[in-house]
Simulated assay, not measured.
Amino acid sequence: MKIDLHSHTLCSDGVLSPADLVARAVERDVNALAITDHDTVAGLAAAQQAIDELQLPLTLINGVEISTSWQQQEIHIVGLNINPHCPTLLSRLAIQQQRRFERAEEMARRLAKNQIPDVLPAVLALANGAAVTRTHFARHLVDIGQASSMNNVFKKYLGRGKIGYVPNNWVDFAEAIQWIQDANGVAVLAHPLKYKLNGKWLRRLVEQFAEAGGDAIEVISPQQTPVQKRELCALAQLHGLTASVGSDFHQVTTWNDLGKNLYLSDDVPTVWASWPQIPASPQV
């Protein structure tokens, strides 16, 4: 059983359509896939339609990834098994989308001030109605020759303290947990090692996430070391959180793909253990 509970489509900053993403998951022998686009559930219906029409052997888990603020850090919380038709959730995500647009306007203004004009129209065209993210800015800046790679864009323009960086204006992370749970979902702390926190601050993040009512933590992502996996499992156990796994897939790369290296031992309580659509057994 191969499970991947974190992935993106072109409805946010992924490169595949919902239909192509679920097809890729089947090619990769993934049995259950969560689509977790940034602050939107727009791709879920199309993904399920493709699964139904093509009779794909894949269980779709309705999800979303909400950008939040904690201690002046941008922290992402994945909502799994949500009701994507929940009116309250949809209205709250609409607020997030407006915040995204306002942040994009300010990023474009700062880049224009530094002799990189006309960024916003190009970024909006690139997003094509999807949730606007810094990844769209990075792709555009690479396209116009401002940097050789998306990594370099963040180092030169979009990272904290750089000319195009705009502090986030996202919802408080405790509030986002409530949004997810109000939509009958479970709240998962996404990719905790990507925030580059030291040990003290990582422990504080996990502790406060649990205190705020969070349910689970992504303990397995591609490229983690065995030591990192054990440490995250121990943190989850310490704070009564279940374990989730996710590739955070946006596009195929040499280091990442759907379902890649997402293995849990059979003694770790999983976030999906009580879900009827997924067997409780570990991935093999």
Rank of each mutant, 00 (worst) to 15 (best):
A212E: 04
G214P: 02
D215F: 01
A216P: 02
I217M: 13
I217D: 00
I217W: 06
E218I: 07
E218R: 06
I220W: 15
I220D: 15
I220S: 15
S221E: 14
P222A: 00
P222Y: 00
Q223M: 10
Q223W: 06
Q224P: 02
Q224V: 01
Q224G: 02
T225E: 14
T225W: 15
P226F: 07
P226G: 08
P226S: 12
P226I: 05
V227L: 14
Q228A: 15
Q228P: 15
Q228N: 13
K229R: 15
K229C: 09
R230E: 13
R230Q: 15
E231T: 08
L232H: 03
L232S: 05
L232F: 09
A234S: 12
A234I: 11
A236G: 13
A236K: 04
A236H: 07
Q237M: 10
Q237H: 11
Q237G: 04
L238E: 12
G240V: 08
G240R: 09
L241M: 06
T242P: 07
A243N: 08
S244W: 09
S244E: 11
V245M: 07
V245G: 04
G246T: 08
G246M: 14
G246N: 10
G246I: 14
S247T: 14
S247A: 14
S247C: 14
S247F: 13
S247Q: 10
D248C: 14
F249C: 12
F249L: 09
F249D: 11
F249S: 12
F249V: 08
H250C: 03
H250A: 02
Q251S: 08
Q251G: 00
T253S: 15
T253P: 11
T253M: 10
T253G: 09
T253I: 07
T254W: 03
W255N: 09
W255M: 03
W255I: 09
W255T: 12
W255P: 00
D257K: 04
L258Y: 03
G259S: 06
G259H: 04
K260C: 03
K260D: 05
K260P: 00
K260V: 02
N261P: 03
L262A: 01
L262H: 02
Y263N: 13
L264S: 09
L264Q: 11
S265L: 07
S265I: 01
S265P: 01
S265W: 00
D266V: 00
D266Q: 05
D267R: 07
P269Q: 05
T270P: 04
T270I: 10
T270F: 08
T270D: 07
